[in-house]
Each structure stands twice: as structure tokens, then as C-alpha cells.
């Protein structure tokens, strides 16, 4: 027994050495200390721009919603994969992908609402900060299940059988993008970009977007679309400067 104990201790010690167990000073360089709420209103700038689509998007199709009489009686619904007006592409998630370093930002306590209304998600694409509550609401007089399929966060699938039911969820880790689907109504899809900072926007009608209160610096900006993937650009924002940036997706 004693021999076994000695052997175990020796094994643990050897393992610690082999695995590099030691003090943090042994790492190549210590990370810079985190800065909380580093946005200075006196120097903060911004980013505005638009998302363009080159090419003719596939025509939206009528969604067959006969599988649920409630959804069917709401009238015709069409696919929303490409929402284009005046050459501008809607529902593109634009965010600061890199360049914020170790900055830490306060997490809003106000919930972001994802509504199931008219047998569709509203909004279809949106952003949220890790730690911020997400309130999922059923405004329909039918059943929905809200099924999130993250890669880095915890997957969940909740049923909401009655109108007015709410479920609050908090994503703990930044992840772009987390898809949602309703397995009851297979045409219902939504995506959320979970970030550890507040610098994101979703392109609206005409493809316009705006990100405000951005500290001066050089950033990688990514634009993500559900069908067309992601594009990145570098941009440098000076003090009090608002830069224009446009992305063009091609079909």
C-alpha cells in the first residue's frame, strides 16, 4: 500500500513537471491588465456604412405553413434569406471582431427580446453581450419550441405551449453566430451574435448600419450574412472620428 502511495506521488510529481506546471512567470508575456469601461466620451468615435449586394438574389418563395392552421391563417409568408432594397442588404451582422485587446465592458442588465410573432422570429438577426439576459417570448397562439444550437455555449431547447410565455436565457461565452430554430415550424430561423463588447449592429433597410462610442484604435470589422458568409475589413478610428465603411457581398 505504501509503495503504491509513493508510486502515485512520484507519478503526480513527474506529471506536473512534464506538463509544465509552474508559476505564471514562466509564460512568454503576461497579458495586459483588463480595463473596465474604457470608453471615453471625449474621444469616442464611430463607424457607419452600408452593406451592398451585387448580383440578383434568388426570388423569395412562399413558405408552406399548412402544417399549423394558426400560422396558415395569418396569410402568406415569404422566405427572408435575402432582404434587399436599393441594392442594400438587410440583416447583416456587423461587429468588431478584433482590436479591443483586453478591454472589458459593462454588461447591460436590460434584456434583449426575441419574439416569436406571426410564426416567425423578430428580430431575425441580432446581437447581445455575453452575460446579458435574452428574453424569449411567445406572442403566438400556437406552440413554439426555441432551440439554440451554439458551438461554445450551452445548447438549449425550451417549449412554449401558450401565448405570453417567456423564457430568459443568458449566454456565457462570446460566439458569432448562434443559430435558433423552431423544430415545430421548420421555416423559423434566427441568429444571434454573442459578444463580450457592445460594438455591433445589424444592417437595416437599405443595408445601412452604425456602430457608436467606439474607442480610438485599429479594428478588424466583420460583416456576417446567413447565406453569404462573412467578410472582414481593417479600419482605424481616430479620436472623435466617425469612419465610413462599406461591404459588398457578391452572388
Amino acid at each position: 500500500m505504501t509503495a503504491l502511495l509513493r508510486f502515485s506521488l512520484a507519478l503526480v510529481a513527474a506529471g506536473s513537471i512534464a506538463c509544465g506546471g509552474g508559476t505564471p512567470q514562466e509564460t512568454a508575456s503576461a497579458p495586459a491588465p483588463a480595463v473596465s469601461n474604457p470608453v471615453d466620451p471625449a474621444t469616442a468615435g464611430g463607424l457607419t456604412g452600408s452593406i451592398k449586394l451585387e448580383g440578383t438574389p434568388p426570388a423569395s418563395e412562399t413558405i408552406n405553413r399548412r402544417s399549423d392552421p394558426y400560422c396558415e391563417q395569418l396569410g402568406e409568408a415569404r422566405t427572408q434569406n435575402f432582404v434587399v432594397s436599393n441594392g442594400g442588404l438587410q440583416n447583416v451582422f456587423v461587429y468588431v471582431k478584433d482590436g479591443l485587446g483586453q478591454m472589458k465592458f459593462p454588461v447591460p442588465t436590460t434584456a434583449v427580446v426575441l419574439d416569436q410573432q406571426g410564426c416567425t422570429y423578430a428580430p431575425r438577426v441580432f446581437g447581445i453581450q455575453a452575460g446579458q439576459p435574452l428574453e424569449i417570448l411567445n406572442s403566438d397562439e400556437t406552440l413554439h419550441n426555441i432551440h439554440a444550437l451554439p458551438m461554445n455555449n450551452r445548447e438549449f431547447n425550451r417549449g412554449q405551449a401558450l401565448k405570453g410565455l417567456k423564457h430568459t436565457h443568458v449566454f456565457t461565452t462570446a460566439e458569432v453566430m448562434v443559430p435558433f430554430k423552431c423544430d415545430v415550424h421548420n421555416w423559423m430561423n434566427a441568429w444571434v451574435g454573442v459578444l463580450d463588447h457592445p460594438f455591433y449592429a445589424v444592417s437595416g433597410t437599405g443595408g445601412g448600419f452604425a456602430i457608436q462610442n467606439l474607442p480610438p484604435g485599429t479594428y478588424t470589422i466583420e460583416a456576417w450574412h446567413e447565406k453569404l458568409g462573412a467578410q472582414t475589413q481593417m479600419v482605424t478610428i481616430g479620436p472623435k472620428e466617425t469612419k465610413e465603411l462599406s461591404f459588398t457581398f457578391k452572388l
Binding site: 402544417s67 399549423d68 392552421p69 400560422c71 406552440l143 417549449g159 405551449a161 423544430d183 415550424h185
Partner: peptide, 20 residues
């Protein structure tokens, strides 16, 4: 959806629930 399997209302069997 919280109901006992055998008392789940028929009118709520919509969409994918019909199959499952």
C-alpha cells in the same frame, strides 16, 4: 410540453409535433 403524453390536446399537434 408539460402535459401527460396521453392527455396532450390533439389541436396542439401542429408542425413537427405531429410526427414526434
Amino acid at each position: 410540453y408539460g402535459w401527460n403524453m396521453f392527455t396532450f390536446p390533439l389541436e396542439k399537434m401542429v408542425g413537427g409535433i405531429r410526427f414526434e
